[in-house]
């Protein structure tokens, strides 16, 4: 297999970049919103809010994402009321299903990361805020959140990288993301080493870019920190 064919394959695989990054960006955004809601439930101090959040985390951490994707994509159409509901336009489409599954997952993991950040904020700062008469929601927004975001950033970056890797699972439900295209090319040419290794290197490059960006952001957010 010549270099030219590998280059052609790489160009073809890069056509899937839109889907891969569409999945990454959308599910990261939706997932982070879910994560904040779950976080607020978790730290609310009310058992009927925090228990469901814990159960959610337990379920999503304990099952493979592939199984979740299959439940949503193949499983949900079993029910007529889902096919009649307004969600059907999303759940009919493999892209929509992948977004739903990945977002729910990201929500679970990121809420746990944010919780770690929130718990590590110095109690004294919150007491100082209370002494100054700042209300609880304001203390959360102006004191806890900025510090917690900075603390949870490295773990959040790792989560983005695992999400990038998880988007490859969308190829199992017929999506033509980079992995999906690679599988098609391998089926045509039967050159698994060249195609899959080139694709792996593409993923590694993106991972590296994400890591760099996160590290730079960390440095930027920590610019007032005294070392």
């Amino acid at each position: 297999m010549s270099v030219g064919i590998i280059m052609d394959a790489i160009l073809r695989m890069l056509h899937g970049i839109g889907i891969t990054f569409g999945l990454l960006g959308l599910s990261l955004a939706i997932g982070s919103i879910i994560a904040v809601l779950l976080l607020l439930m978790r730290i609310s101090g009310r058992w009927w809010l925090s228990w469901p959040a814990q159960l959610y985390f337990y379920i999503f951490r304990g099952t493979p994402i592939l199984v979740q994707i299959f439940i949503i994509y193949y499983g949900l159409p079993q029910f007529d009321w889902i096919r009649d509901s307004m969600f059907w336009s999303v759940l009919r489409d493999p892209f929509g299903c992948a977004i739903v599954a990945l977002s729910l997952n990201v929500g679970a993991y990121v809420s746990e990361i944010f919780r770690g950040g929130v718990l590590s904020v110095d109690k004294g700062l919150l007491e100082a805020g209370a002494a100054l008469g700042i209300s609880t929601p304001q203390r959360f927004i102006y004191i806890t959140a900025p510090l917690a975001i900075r603390i949870s950033l490295p773990a959040y970056g790792n989560e983005i990288i695992s999400l990038l890797k998880s988007t490859a699972l969308a190829s199992t439900i017929t999506l033509a993301d980079m992995t999906g295209i690679a599988r098609t090319i391998v089926a045509e040419t039967f050159a698994p080493y060249q195609i899959f290794i080139s694709l792996a290197l593409i993923y590694v490059t993106f991972t590296w870019i994400i890591q760099r960006t996160i590290r730079w952001t960390e440095g930027y957010l920590g610019r007032f920190t005294i070392r």
Binding site: I161, L164, K165, S166, T167, A168, L169, S171, T172, T179, A182, R183, V186, F190, A191, P192, Y193, F196, I197, L199, A200, Y203, V204, F206, T207, W208
Partner: peptide, 22 residues
């Protein structure tokens, strides 16, 4: 570590199976 932590698991599984088969 850089290679395997940056590559989707599904890709490694496919590579291992089809690669060894070829």
């Amino acid at each position: 570590t850089v290679f395997f932590r940056g590559t989707p698991e599904i890709l490694v599984v496919l590579l291992m199976y089809f690669g060894s088969a070829v």
